[in-house]
């Protein structure tokens, strides 16, 4: 690095003697507006094209009677696709099921992961914390599909769990563990736990040990310390983790189809199915997408507003 870096600098410095390069660099230095435009062009273009345009187009399609519009017909604007959502019990129930499931899954993830994060950040021996954290983060990079498959192998009728219980002559085997809410919950927790762990770990790590020590010295029981000190001080982590997990679960598409029951369609899968039908279902699917985005972000925003820490930053 050192030698090649030096050579690189020499090259760049000698380039300064090169007329056109020098003119270009000096011209740039004299025109701050041009410099700014050069920096801004790609990012602004990207935001418009990649982040906003597809979404704006989707909003527009959701209000159109048909899409694509046949060439010799006028574009008709309508609310009927939004009305279809409220008129069809099938869609409405999938929507409600999604929100209930995502809320419960978020709570479950919080309850399971909080002690893990607490152990990692406060109790585990200091020298081993990073290694233990890496251990828990390791499965993070495995595809949702591979993880679903691994749980199919665990929970199937002739899967690992049933075959293990069989060794002990467990009665009533095989247990129906797969393709129902049990398997889906286990699989989803597998997917969400790390999104909860990292914000919680970051928040808990910041809590000064001496605060906890002081509370203990003053006679606060572990439960009281948890409720009065640890939970309030880790509130930002809890809100952050819950937000991430909720949004992840509400958008789950593949895992519910691989691990869940056939009758328990979640709304994201409903949207996917609408789109994989004939092309004229696009406005309907777009309207559903808008409803999902609107309600999910509103729900999460409300949650964050209610529970975000009221203590000004820095004074905690």
């Amino acid at each position: 690095m050192g030698v090649s870096g030096l050579a690189m600098t020499r090259l760049l410095v000698s380039a300064r003697g090169f007329g056109p390069y020098r003119n270009a660099v000096d011209a740039l230095a004299r025109r701050p507006a041009l410099r700014f435009a050069l920096i801004a062009a790609i990012p602004v273009g990207w935001i418009l094209i990649a982040n906003l345009a597809p979404l704006v187009q989707m909003v527009a399609i959701s209000f159109q009677d048909r899409y694509p519009v046949p060439p010799d017909e006028p574009t008709l604007w309508t609310l009927r696709h939004y009305a279809a959502f409220f008129d069809t019990p099938h869609y409405l129930s999938a929507f409600v099921r999604s929100f209930v499931f995502a809320t419960l899954a978020t709570l479950l993830t919080l309850i399971v992961v909080f002690p893990v994060a607490y152990y990692l950040s406060k109790v585990a021996p200091k020298g081993r914390r990073i290694r233990l954290l890496l251990l828990v983060i390791a499965p993070f990079w495995i595809s949702e599909i591979v993880r679903s498959f691994a749980w199919i192998l665990m929970l199937a009728n002739r899967g690992a769990v049933n075959s293990f219980l069989d060794l002990f002559g467990f009665p009533g085997l095989p247990l129906d563990l797969l393709y129902n809410n049990i398997s889906l919950t286990i699989g989803v927790l597998y997917l969400t736990s790390l999104y909860m762990l990292l914000p919680l770990y970051a928040a808990l790590e910041k809590i000064d040990d001496s605060v906890l020590q002081a509370a203990a010295d003053l006679g606060a029981s572990p439960v009281k310390r948890l409720i009065r000190i640890v939970l309030p001080l880790s509130r930002d982590g809890i809100v952050g983790g819950c937000t991430l997990v909720f949004l992840l679960v509400i958008g789950l598409y593949a895992m519910p189809q691989l691990l869940g029951g056939p009758d328990d369609t979640l709304f994201a899968a409903t949207i996917g199915q609408v789109f994989s039908r004939a092309g004229d279902a696009w406005p309907l699917g777009s309207a559903f997408s808008m409803i999902l985005i609107g309600v999910a972000l509103g729900y999460v925003g409300l949650f964050a507003l209610l529970f975000r820490s009221r203590v000004p930053r820095g004074s905690a």
Partner: peptide, 24 residues
Amino acid sequence: LMITVIVLPAFLPVVVSAIAIRMF
């Protein structure tokens, strides 16, 4: 405002974002 617009895709359900891009 910029950060909000930039992180927007991370907060959208992936299904919705993918389909919106496909239509676009």
